[in-house]
């Protein structure tokens, strides 16, 4: 594929160019403002915030609010900080992302390389999962979890998120594998590889970009989910989002804004990390199915 050259850019005058950059910089600053407020206020003593200088840099820098949010803030009735809930989230997110991604990859593999009668209808039905609003399934899901003995457990949450995620992960992998050359599968068949050998040895090693897309998508969605966490989690399996809500919404005592800001950043940090580490593969993977070359 030929590389685009600079010549294809629209020629603009110097003044126009300056104006464009200025506007872009202003937009960027505006967009960054909430992050700035959160960061700055999370390293201030509470008096400086209540004293009214929300936009000012701290006069006294302190990590006290971060420590408090992590390990000693009052969450509900216990002064545990957010840390146990952070681990609850991890215990829920990692298996849920792994299982839904692997199942999605297997589904995509079967739907494109082992076609059977009615496979497109089945795929269409699976896509439906992407359009079902969470609220609709709350009560039936609670009943199902109860019947399966998973109510109030981390594994119950894992199940819910896997079931909801399969629609998306299947969509990703199916579209990715649809353009994966079928001749490779046939060559492997003639070479004597079985169903799973073809999957592990041929398809999966070539699925890096789409696996990253699936992992980022699933990780952000499951980590940020509040509704299922609030509805189905027990006291010892509540995820980070629910705990953060309990921290911020506490109706008694002084509102410790600096601790709240620190807690909110802590809750957002893992998804931010995932984006920074794998983000550049994200667009590449999203494009992979649509544009060849």
């Amino acid at each position: 594929m030929a590389h685009a050259t600079q010549d294809t850019a629209i020629r603009t005058g110097r003044a126009v160019r300056m104006l464009i950059y200025l506007v872009l910089i202003l937009f960027a600053l505006f967009y960054m403002l909430p992050l700035y407020v959160m960061l700055v206020n999370s390293v201030k003593p509470l008096e400086e915030i209540t004293g009214g200088g929300m936009m000012n840099l701290p006069q006294l820098w302190t990590l006290e609010p971060w420590a408090k949010a992590w390990s000693s803030a009052q969450i509900g009735v216990e002064p545990t900080g957010l840390s146990p809930y952070f681990w609850n989230s991890i215990k829920m997110v990692v298996p849920a992302v792994a299982i839904s991604t692997i199942l999605g990859a297997l589904n995509g593999y079967v739907l494109t390389k082992w076609r059977f009668r009615g496979d497109t209808i089945l795929f269409g039905l699976m896509l439906f999962a992407c359009f079902i609003p969470f609220q609709i399934v709350l009560i039936p899901m609670a009943r199902m979890l109860g019947l399966m003995g998973l109510a109030g457990t981390t594994w119950g949450l894992v199940l819910v998120h896997v079931v909801y995620g399969i629609g998306f992960t299947t969509l990703y992998f199916r579209n990715y594998y649809a353009v994966f050359p079928t001749e490779l599968v046939r060559a492997a068949q003639i070479d004597g590889a079985g169903f799973f050998q073809i999957f592990w040895r041929i398809l999966l090693p070539s699925s890096g970009p789409i696996a990253v897309v699936s992992i980022i998508w699933q990780f952000t969605n499951i980590w940020n989910d509040f509704l299922f966490g609030a509805s189905f989690a027990g006291a010892d399996s509540q995820p980070m989002t629910v705990a953060l809500n309990n921290l911020v919404q506490a109706s008694h005592g002084v509102k410790e804004y600096n601790v709240h800001f620190a807690g909110a950043i802590l809750a957002a940090l893992p998804t931010l990390l995932v984006y920074i580490v794998a983000g550049r593969y994200f667009v590449r993977g999203l494009m992979a199915g649509s544009v060849k070359g």
């Binding site: 050359p181 492997a188 070479d191 590889a193 041929i202 090693p205």
Partner: peptide
């Protein structure tokens, strides 16, 4: 039997050596 495909169908994630011996390995 052995087959040579129009697109060659070489496994992109394996080296040439691994491509050649994959069938033997599977057998």
């Amino acid at each position: 039997i052995a087959m040579v495909f129009q697109s060659y169908a070489l496994y992109p994630n394996m080296t040439v050596g691994q491509n050649i011996t994959f069938g033997l390995e599977m057998h």
